[in-house]
Nucleic acid binder design. Structure first.
Lengths: 187, 187
DNA sequence: CGCGCGATTGAGTAATTTCAAATCTAGTGG
DNA sequence: CCACTAGATTTGAAATTACTCAATCGCGCG
């Protein structure tokens, strides 16, 4: 199972067996059931998570109680409430399972140790972070530029797998429209 | 003038004089006048820019000719069409001066050299990238959660300086509403 | 003075939301 | 095999919000 993480990292930097053993020693493994929370709004954020299997959603609940989905996290994705993780403050978002999931957990302390002890891992995280930033900008652009229907179709092209796995209600919360409007779109 | 860059970097990592001299040797300086383009859609993206002074906007023009502002870049900000910069492909965005500007230019080659030769700079860029990612996520959340009026007020709180420097038309293009709608908001 | 640019206002139109009701679907137990 | 239920999805209709297009206003500058 650790091999999944290794393959993932080695798509960007090469690792020796010793290095990878060390890396593994800094992660713990956890299993969650559908609907369980990995991060609960208002509580401390202990870990960043690497998703081995399953599907998560990162959400924010606004003042009126409406839930918005900042991102989905599937296999091979990293996810956390990063603002809270990096600053060690309370979560403003929640991270919850849409399917049973297995994740590797990395504490901030171990993240820093990883960066410090294995410079290659710092390169790895830098690349990942840049890609994450670029992805977020693409999403901003999509929200600014496209209407709900176009956003829906873009998402369908970008992540076709999602449509088998999440309800339209969840997709609507990601796209930023009401589920009724989304339902009326594909006519 | 280089001191601005040094201060900026040293807010995150400490530098020796030698290190900083080397860093400086990898940047070139350029001056632009208001309305000039640093990056033009469809052309190659040679540099990432550190803004010494002035104000830039990163824009995307959609199929109907409407311009959307992905971000403003003021003093001490890094900006580029990063997707095109990192992959050395043609720009899909444009970077243009809203005010006369002085920038330091960093080629991708020199960026990589910087990361490779001075690991501290890799740490610096990782931290910056994480902050950029977090900022983008905040913006996504704001677009999903808040209506135009709330977004306007948040922006006002976050970057009060912008309001002295940018026309309402530009602000509207950033907030994702028409300038007429923005005009009607603050009643 | 008059031009040009940005900001504002008005009126009609289009898109989206909200709330409520109806329909569909998968799983359960009889 | 069928009835039943919970959850998700769809539909309807009214209300709200934002957009477009056009006209007007305000101001600085040659």
């Amino acid at each position: 199972m650790q091999e999944k993480l290794r393959n993932h990292i080695e798509q960007i930097v090469r690792l020796t067996n010793d290095e990878f053993s060390f890396i593994c020693s800094l992660f713990t493994t956890k299993e969650y059931k559908k609907n369980q929370f990995l991060i609960h709004e208002g509580e401390s954020v202990m870990y960043a998570y690497f998703v081995v299997s399953g599907l998560l959603k990162l959400t924010y609940t606004d003042g009126t109680g409406k839930e918005h989905i900042i991102s989905f996290a599937m296999e091979d994705w990293w996810e956390s409430d990063f603002p809270a993780y990096f600053t060690q403050t309370k979560a403003t978002m929640s991270l919850q399972c849409l399917e049973d999931a297995t994740v590797f957990c990395l504490s901030l302390e171990n993240y820093q140790k990883l960066c410090f002890d294995i410079p290659k891992m710092e390169s790895f995280f830098l690349k990942k972070s840049n890609l994450g930033f670029i992805g977020s900008q693409r999403r901003i652009l999509s929200l600014l530029t496209n209407n709900a229907k176009e956003r829906y179709e873009q998402l369908l092209i970008l992540y076709p797998a999602l449509f088998q796995r999440v309800s339209k209600t969840q997709l609507a919360a990601y796209l930023g429209v009401s589920r009724e409007t989304l339902s009326r779109l594909y006519s």
